[in-house]
Structure formats: C-alpha cells, structure tokens
C-alpha cells in the first residue's frame, strides 16, 4: 500500500459516500445516471468474486464488501425506492450502456493475463470500468444545471483512478518488474474520459459559478 493508492481508495470511497448522502438524505437522484450505477454494480460483481476465494487483508475485504453493497444499494434506490425513483430523469439517461458490456466481454476473452474464469471476468471488469462513466458524462451534458453533490461525486470518482495512475508509476519504480499493462491502459483510458469534465469542474470552482458542461 502506498499513499497514492490510499488516496485513490479514499477518493473512491468519498465519491460513493457523497452519492449515498445525496440519495439517502434528500431522497433525490436528479442528474445521476442509473446506467452508470448499473455498470459499476456489474464491475464490482465481476471484479470482487475473489473475496470468496482469497484473503488479502481486512482493509481489502471490507472495502470490497462496501463497494459491492453500496453499488447495489444505489441501483436499488434508483429503481425501486418510490421517492428517489421519481427524481430519476430516465428520458435523459438514454446512453445505450448494454452496447458497452458485450465489447468489453469479448475484448476480455481476447486480451487477458490468464484464460481462467475469474481472470477473464476480472479483466472484463477493468475494461467495463474504463467506460462505465460515459452514461453519466452524457447525462451531465444534458442536465443544464448540475447540482454540487453530483458534480463532486463525478470529480472524486475520476480523481480515484488518477491517484491509481500515480500509484502504478510509484510501484513500477519501487517494485521489481512490476507491470500490469491491461490495468494501466484501462486506467489511462478511464481517466482520459474525465479530462473535459475536470476542466469544466475546476473552471466552475475557480469562478465560483455553477458547473455546466457544454452540450
């Protein structure tokens, strides 16, 4: 564990807590893409299967259980909670996220570290996570005024993978022949998708004006 990875995990944890706070306290999911939440639930479900087969540390296991629990809870709130679901703008959240799942799965069947059931699903979860934010970014462009909590949620979600990139650089230079091309390239693609969001987020923060993404 290094400071970059801890910062990344804490940023990820914080982003989910922000979203849970928004949904649980003000019972609203306005501006939040259900499709991105569903993709993330699938990412965690296919990546954290190893909590049944292996044990790394208490931290690792607790974080995996929290990510699994929170992602499915958020999807449940947005789909079935009769107050929250009313604030979900389904006619704006129209990204065809099913078109992301199959190509990621096929790519995982073709490009992976080892051709085993767990490893292919793990690789699939990496590719899917790289593109999972797309429905949310599209929704933000359509939602004229993005509320602060949603903006902060997306920012910290993007920041977590950026910290992970620093973590991979650190590990590359400090550990003997440590390299994970698949993870690194997926992480770079994932972070690159946030580039313009980061630009407008920092700009709105500097000018202390509401966050607005150009259509």
């Amino acid at each position: 564990m290094n400071i970059f990875r801890l910062a990344g995990d804490m940023s990820h944890l914080f982003s989910i807590l922000l979203l849970l706070l928004k949904i649980h306290t003000i019972k609203s999911c306005a501006g939040v893409s259900l499709k991105t939440q569903e993709l993330y639930a699938l990412v965690f479900a296919t990546r954290y299967l190893d909590i049944f087969t292996g044990y790394i540390s208490l931290y690792n296991t607790l974080m995996k259980m929290f990510f699994l629990w929170s992602s499915f809870t958020i999807v449940w709130y947005m789909r079935y909670h009769n107050v929250v679901r009313r604030s979900y703008d389904k006619d704006q959240d129209t990204f065809r996220h099913y078109f992301l799942i199959l190509p990621c799965f096929i790519l995982a069947l073709l490009v992976h570290e080892k051709f085993t059931f767990l490893e292919v699903l793990w690789t699939f979860s990496l590719y899917l996570e790289a593109v999972a934010i797309l429905p949310q970014l599209v929704l933000l462009q359509r939602t004229r005024n993005v509320d602060n909590l949603t903006g902060h949620y997306v920012f910290f979600l993007g920041a977590y993978r950026s910290f992970y990139i620093l973590n991979w650089i650190y590990r590359y230079f400090t550990e003997q022949n440590y390299y994970k091309w698949i993870t690194w390239i997926s992480g770079l693609v994932q972070t690159a998708l946030y580039a313009d969001f980061f630009y407008y987020y920092v700009k709105s923060w500097r000018n202390s004006e509401r966050l607005q993404l150009p259509a």
């Binding site: 990820h12 995996k64 570290e113 085993t116 793990w122 973590n167 993870t183």
Partner: peptide
C-alpha cells in the same frame, strides 16, 4: 500465489 493471478489492488 501463482495459480490465480494475484490482484492486490481494489
């Protein structure tokens, strides 16, 4: 642990 590729990161 070399039978399953070891993923220590979240």
């Amino acid at each position: 642990i070399n039978d399953i590729t070891f993923h220590d990161e979240l």
